[in-house]
Design a binder for these strands. Structure first.
Lengths: 219, 219
DNA sequence: CATCTTACGATACGGTTGTTCAACAAGGAG
DNA sequence: CTCCTTGTTGAACAACCGTATCGTAAGATG
């Protein structure tokens, strides 16, 4: 008298779609428990799929991890490429602290990934490419801003410093937000650039309004 | 006709000594393969001890990890407390890039640990204390340097920025030294502080002589 | 020498790891 | 409808995970 299993017992997705679902589930696992929770069982349970799918669609668990890393970088640079973001150095900082990028889950994921890159040649290769592109974009923005203000800076060097400072405040906030709040982290970045470029006009509360975050995780 | 097992079959150490040996072996494993390689089997094999010893001396694997983290912090702050280090802001930077602290193995270990802190309350508690102390020391040094130069700075805020910047260049160099060399990383820190304090006198090649590193790892 | 404390080695345990594989079925093509 | 491609399942696998527990023996003590 149990419910008749009339309908399909599972759904078939394209390899691309299922891959995206597995990546999404993997991100959830990474955010929840770090690289230790990045296991086939956890991920497939989160994705409500059987355990064979990771190997089937990605070839191996490591390949999935590489795809996860690429996805994280894509999402980060996507924020920079948004058409409606603020121009110049201010936009640079605000993009760094955009809620889509700067949130507890993402920071935990970055921390977990950084710890693995040193041990995974594939991840390191992806990083090298993406980081180079990111650096170019930051340097270009800073050079333009400096030129518009009649200042002369070594844009490349400053870009490296700026990205490193961003990574640093990400680390501190990701490890323990009570030690370095999001606001203090952003203020650090402003102070750093203002020392080189002069006063920067912080945006009104408009783009800072949605600080509340994405709400409680439905765990 | 094999060699007679006359001598002792193993050696007994004090709990303190054996604990230090296990911590040392754990550090080697972390540097070699990240948190994934932090396993009872790996560590005890590295320490040439049987697998029961971690539980016996530390109670659990997690407790050993906490001890490992404390050891890393101890060694880092020990460099700051060295009597013969350079005074003021220059000493601050040079301590950060002391070969005893800034080397590929240590950076890999920090990266691996940071990824776990977010998932381990005990580690986070240790971090909170040590980080606070470190920040106090950095802020004090910066305040003195600024006062001696007649500059006024928010020492606390600058200390946070400086530590974050240090963490950031550590991350970048640890992930991929070809992207941000040790020299460029140190120069970034100098540029940052010089913007606030004025020119700093970099030390002669004396303390930079031993850059060569600890030689190839005997893997 | 005998005695005692306790660090130690070895093993067993249930659970989890990533991967392989054969049977299966969803869903489009003819 | 039948056929066929292929995404999917779930079991099976050996290797490894962290821990508990046993008897043993190192080495200090008297």
């Amino acid at each position: 008298m149990t419910k008749k299993p009339d309908g399909p017992r599972f759904r078939r997705y394209s390899s691309e779609t299922r891959g995206a679902m597995l990546i999404e589930a993997a991100l959830v696992c990474l955010a929840r428990g770090g690289i230790t929770a990045f296991t086939v069982d956890n991920i497939c349970r989160e994705a409500k799929a059987s355990r064979g799918l990771i190997t089937h669609h990605f070839g191996s668990k490591d390949a999935l991890l590489a795809a996860v890393y690429a996805t994280m970088y894509d999402r980060f640079t996507a924020v920079f490429d948004e058409g409606d973001r603020l121009p110049g150095a201010v936009g640079l900082i605000e993009a760094n602290f955009d809620p889509a990028v700067f949130n507890p889950e993402s920071l935990k994921i970055w921390l977990a990934l950084w710890g693995e890159i040193a041990n995974n040649e594939d991840l390191r290769a992806v990083h090298r490419q993406r980081y180079q592109d990111l650096l170019d974009q930051v340097a270009r923005t800073l050079a333009e801003e400096a030129a518009a203000r009649g200042k002369t800076i070594d844009a490349r060097s400053v870009a490296v410093q700026f990205v490193a400072l961003s990574d640093g405040v990400w680390v501190e906030n990701g490890i323990d937000p009570t030690m370095l709040s999001r606001e203090a982290a952003r203020e650090s970045c402003y102070a750093f650039l203002e020392n080189l470029l002069g006063a920067l006009a912080r945006p009104a509360a408009a783009s800072i309004a949605e600080i509340g975050g994405p709400g409680p995780s439905s765990d």
